[in-house]
Design a protein around this nucleic acid. Structure first.
Lengths: 103, 103
DNA sequence: TCTATATATGAATATATATACATATATAGA
DNA sequence: TCTATATATGTATATATATTCATATATAGA
């Protein structure tokens, strides 16, 4: 990592807060669930067997950190992953833990 | 994200646990501090103004998740970032939060 | 072996937070 | 407007965990 990329403490805290959001199993599963295409809140809840309320709470946090992006269509709101950075972050981390399978 | 990359729930939990480790400001700062070169535990503690005990506790977690790698040299143990995956993960997340500066 | 220093570990606790439950808001259709 | 449905929000609480303090282990040098 080059010196110019070294975040100051304020940035470090922001980055940590964002990692923390992906550090909860429910929220990570939600992020994964909306990675291929926009999915409605209720559909996420069903697929992951979580209450719509809980999903909505989590989506609010993910939305605030720009990890997911909402699009309203009548009564339903569909969420999708916000951008490619997030996809890369998750993919790289998945690669990392898969390399640890040598047991 | 391709279908073949979709982690099962067990993998998702592992990934989330790893994100959670980077989701604490102290641990993230530690990870950043060892990103350029191996750094001794005491030196990390001084640079980040944390107690050596706390740094050691955190390093144990980071080590267990293969986020950092130790190398002993006499009485001192120097830690460095484990591999390039982790560097990429942190870099991409840093890029992400920096894009949010439009305020 | 004895001492000093670097790192690691164990246990206690204050704080943070994921979840559940109740309630509110928003939109569509009748 | 009234009803039904999809999301969102407020609050309470059980659980997780970051940190501190005390103690242990490991290595180097005398």
């Amino acid at each position: 990592m080059e010196k110019r990329d070294q975040p100051n403490d304020e940035e470090a805290i922001l980055v940590a807060e964002t990692f923390k959001l992906l550090g909860d199993p429910s929220r990570l599963r939600i992020a994964l669930a909306v990675m291929e295409e926009p999915v409605a809140v209720g559909a996420i809840a069903e697929r992951l067997d979580l209450s719509p309320s809980l999903v909505s709470h989590h989506l609010r946090l993910l939305r605030a950190a720009r990890l997911v992006r909402p699009e309203r269509d009548g009564r339903t709101v569909r969420y999708s992953i916000h951008d490619h950075h997030i996809e890369h972050v998750v993919k790289d981390m998945l690669d990392h833990i898969r390399e640890g399978d040598r047991s």
